[in-house]
Design a binder for these strands. Structure first.
Lengths: 136, 136
DNA sequence: TTACCTGCAAACTGTTTGCCGCTGT
DNA sequence: ACAGCGGCAAACAGTTTGCAGGTAA
């Protein structure tokens, strides 16, 4: 079943705008912000409103097609749900970002599950701290 | 050296407002938001402006007296830097919060330091996921 | 006396919402 | 045809900033 069919099967429509948001996410190598998605779409389709992008991201997240993460600012970053999951290390001094394998985070997730019954989503928020250079 | 003396030694002033912010943080059992601090101060001193609270939190953080953390919303939470550090588990479905010992997080911090040279501040952002009840 | 600090008002960023006409199914 | 959806403009929350006068040291 295609994405479009699945969306329709859930009583929703596959509109041009929805497809453009999906495409923008498909093109992105990493997480991108709603504003970046809107900007990249509006480069070719200037009439498309940022609020439409927000509404579509929310809808697509409900359907399980996209997810979001938080780095160390107030901005939400989006990615396709089927792109490879990974953690983030963000330096609070220089702002550098490093992606890390989920396997590094897995032992903590396991422990939180065992000791607290908590199913942690360790890809959801970046780990903040000081990178090698800034820690000196 | 008292806090006031230290602040003065750094060329800054100990104002009534600054002391009130410090006091509000001292009274709080857990992290509180700037808005909660402002509200609690304004209950007795209505003329004190929220922006003054923000400016003082920033100044006190620079001096190392307070730190902030992020749960799963857009709101910054503050605490005194000398209050006991701990991690947070926040349920994305029911919103419940649980505090956890830093010792649970320490192995990850150690590994990030060893493998990536990254000094992680694992108290800075809450771990988001599903609590025992919501995970089912 | 002299910077630092304050209250006030206004700006700002990222995001959400109400309205109403449009369009996919 | 009838929901869902889009564009537009306005509202929103949390926070930041410019200004001009006030106050700690």
């Amino acid at each position: 079943m295609t994405v479009a069919d699945d969306i329709r099967a859930k009583g929703m429509r596959m509109t041009v705008q929805r497809r453009l948001v999906l495409d923008a996410l498909r093109r992105a190598r990493h997480h991108i912000t709603a504003e970046e998605i809107a900007r990249s779409i509006r480069a070719s389709y200037p009439q498309i409103d940022p609020s439409t992008v927000y509404r579509n991201l929310e809808a697509l997240e409900r359907l399980g097609y996209v997810t979001h993460t938080h780095l160390d600012d107030r901005v939400t970053r989006w990615r396709r749900a089927d792109s490879p999951q990974h953690g983030h290390l963000v330096c609070r001094r220089c702002g550098s970002e490093e992606e890390i394998s989920m396997s590094v985070l897995a032992p903590l997730a396991k422990r939180l599950k065992g000791e607290h019954g908590f199913s942690a989503d360790l890809a959801h928020s970046a780990v903040v701290g000081l990178c090698r250079e800034c820690a000196g």
